[in-house]
Amino acid sequence: MARIDTRRMTHRHEGSLVVFHIGMTINTWHRPDRWWPVFAAMPGMLAELAKDPESGLLGYRLLVGRGGPTLIQYWESTDKLYAYAGDPDARHRPAWAAYNRRARRANGAVGVFHETYVVERAETMYVSTPVMGLARATESVPVGPRGDRATQRLGDGRTRSSAA
């Protein structure tokens, strides 16, 4: 089990930041032959990215819900994210082509989605958790006296009371 940090922690990061959600919806659970290849392609891509510190991937977190898995990724920039997605020598392009071929034969059996967010400011709070999320992808630091409130950590200039 990961080490639990009982302190109030937040993240620290300078520079650009992109949050990318990518996932799949499993619409026919009884047909793993249709959705398993889509699911199985992702670990190889993550391993490939992890071996390349210049890829721009800062970190990720896998969530599994009722409809299927979602991977939350943290990237240095959209340029690096799109460079990986379009690289003909990387694992993503062949996996995407294979998905499209299979999807034509099994229309609606499995869906894929992605959402890209360019982050201007971010606020985080972690209490009694392992290092996770944005703090794991960037840097985990204790909440200081000037970051006691969410609005202070977000840096929006407000000083009134807020959650967390």
Rank of each mutant, 00 (worst) to 15 (best):
N107F: 09
A41P: 02
P145N: 13
V143A: 02
A85Y: 07
T129G: 09
R105Q: 14
P130D: 10
R12M: 05
E120C: 06
M24V: 09
G67K: 13
L63T: 11
A98R: 12
E54P: 04
L63P: 08
S128Q: 08
E123N: 07
R8K: 07
R105D: 12
E76G: 08
V119H: 01
P130L: 10
A97R: 12
R146F: 13
T151A: 08
A95Q: 00
G144W: 04
L71H: 05
T25M: 08
D156S: 13
W35T: 02
R66I: 15
R158P: 03
P145D: 12
V110C: 07
G147K: 05
A103K: 13
P142N: 04
A50F: 04
A41W: 00
I22M: 11
M45R: 07
D87W: 01
P32C: 02
R160W: 10
R7F: 05
R158G: 10
R34N: 13
R102P: 05
G144S: 15
E76M: 04
R153N: 00
T70C: 12
A90F: 05
A150M: 11
M132A: 15
P142F: 00
L49Y: 00
S77H: 03
M45G: 10
T28C: 09
I26C: 00
H11Q: 04
V112R: 11
I26D: 00
F39G: 10
W96R: 14
A97H: 14
V110H: 01
F113T: 06
F20P: 03
M132L: 14
L81A: 02
A103W: 13
L134S: 03
D89V: 07
F113P: 05
L49A: 06
R91T: 11
H21R: 12
A163E: 14
T10H: 03
A106Q: 14
Q73L: 06
H21L: 15
I26P: 01
A50I: 05
P130R: 12
T151E: 07
D52T: 08
V64Y: 07
S140V: 06
A47V: 13
G44N: 10
G155T: 03
V127P: 05
V112D: 05
G59H: 00
E54L: 10
